[in-house]
Write a protein that binds this DNA or RNA. Sequence first.
DNA 1: TTTCATTGCGTCGTTATGACACAATGATAA
DNA 2: TTATCATTGTGTCATAACGACGCAATGAAA
Lengths: 247, 247
Amino acid sequence: MEKGGKLFHPGLSLDCVIFGFHDNQLKVLLLKMEHTDHWALPGGFVYKDETLEAAATRVLQERTGINDIFLQQFHVFGDPARSDRKYHSNRLKKLGIEAEKDHWLLNRFITVGFYALVEFSHVTPTPDNTSVACEWQHLHNIGNLFMDHRQILGKALETLRQQLNYQPIGYKLLPDKFTMPELQTLYETILGKKLDRRNFQRRMNSYGILRRLKETRKGGAHKAPYLYSFNLRKYQQALLEGLQGGW
Amino acid sequence: MEKGGKLFHPGLSLDCVIFGFHDNQLKVLLLKMEHTDHWALPGGFVYKDETLEAAATRVLQERTGINDIFLQQFHVFGDPARSDRKYHSNRLKKLGIEAEKDHWLLNRFITVGFYALVEFSHVTPTPDNTSVACEWQHLHNIGNLFMDHRQILGKALETLRQQLNYQPIGYKLLPDKFTMPELQTLYETILGKKLDRRNFQRRMNSYGILRRLKETRKGGAHKAPYLYSFNLRKYQQALLEGLQGGW
DNA sequence: TTTCATTGCGTCGTTATGACACAATGATAA
DNA sequence: TTATCATTGTGTCATAACGACGCAATGAAA
């Protein structure tokens, strides 16, 4: 906190939108802030000799426990008015740090937005030293967000939608074995619209990127759907050209 | 040069890839650097109270003379090794500025890449104070580029390709009146592949975003092609959904 | 006046798409 | 044990879109 000015690249931060999929819902990992009902995206600063990607990877490792994480830079947020200097100066005061006017945290910050795709069950949510909790929240039921984090989240989702045919989004978000309805719900959530069940299945199968397993998912009421897994080699090859047809 | 440290956001720059279309070729506006055969993307720094977009707009205005320019942020380049500190320290020496070790220009810089689309004939190329010339270069015949500018250009082109169905790329790059073969060549250059002339025309017409004029383009050898202009209202409406089918 | 590359418009067979029908499944309730 | 019923697997069908290609019209240059 005191040495940050010497350690970090000045006026630069990053924020991560961490997506997970569970209970047939797209979720985002958020940090609950102290003394308010506000939530924040996991973020951090960039060491002076660190790449942006390394910094993001480090932050993501700390919040999720996952080392090898899929992430993509998607936008820079640089509005001069985006910083909440009052928050930082209050926080410094509480920490007993004399908040000189030119304290490194009180300057303007540009932030680089990253989105990350993780397998929900592999994550161990871990708060950082500015937060009191780290929890998954349903994408469509998110409370008050800090600063411009709502805007950052929105842009991340928009990017996810655009890259659906070019990034291994299903592969990174779903567990090894999943059902066709689960995959479809994921697509529907990201796209924000309903898709026809039968046409979805036909198209997905036509790509040749799925392997249908002998097993079915027992346990739910009604007919047990087959389990699928990705044929990773073919998936990646198909993504190079983009999944044809689009959604 | 001396006061930059106080005026600008520290360790932050931006670089612009300015695309234009002329002589049936996609071109990029570059700056010729002094004393070398290297070229550089037009770039600049961000004032402490300026948005990134405003800074890019300012830079673009200075290099092209155009005020109302179309630009899009596309990527941040943050490799710690990307800066060429030797270049800056030499330059400072030549300018007679004592290059203290902690001179603001000698620190690590993160740069935000913007691409801009301009109507070629509206541009008045103007060098900045670090360059001896400002010229259009053919996209496929570009000389040595400074630092990581080749990589930045590559990423810009990749982004352009991805956004072809979502941004008014034809509208921003072509003059008010243009022929179908010109539009097709633009698409072919961006996509990097040949398209069937007749199918291209059919698809373009089916979008309903073009208005065929009564005039033809006389002067070239062979049959005179019709001139077209964009129906801007319909174009923009179609872009919201993305031009269907893709290329 | 002829030549010829280019342009405008159209054809044709195939494939992809959207909308929908129907039987099979399997946990739950009767 | 049997009936129920939402859900799943598979298929059909008419239409639209697509890729490949043919051919006549044009207009500057030979």
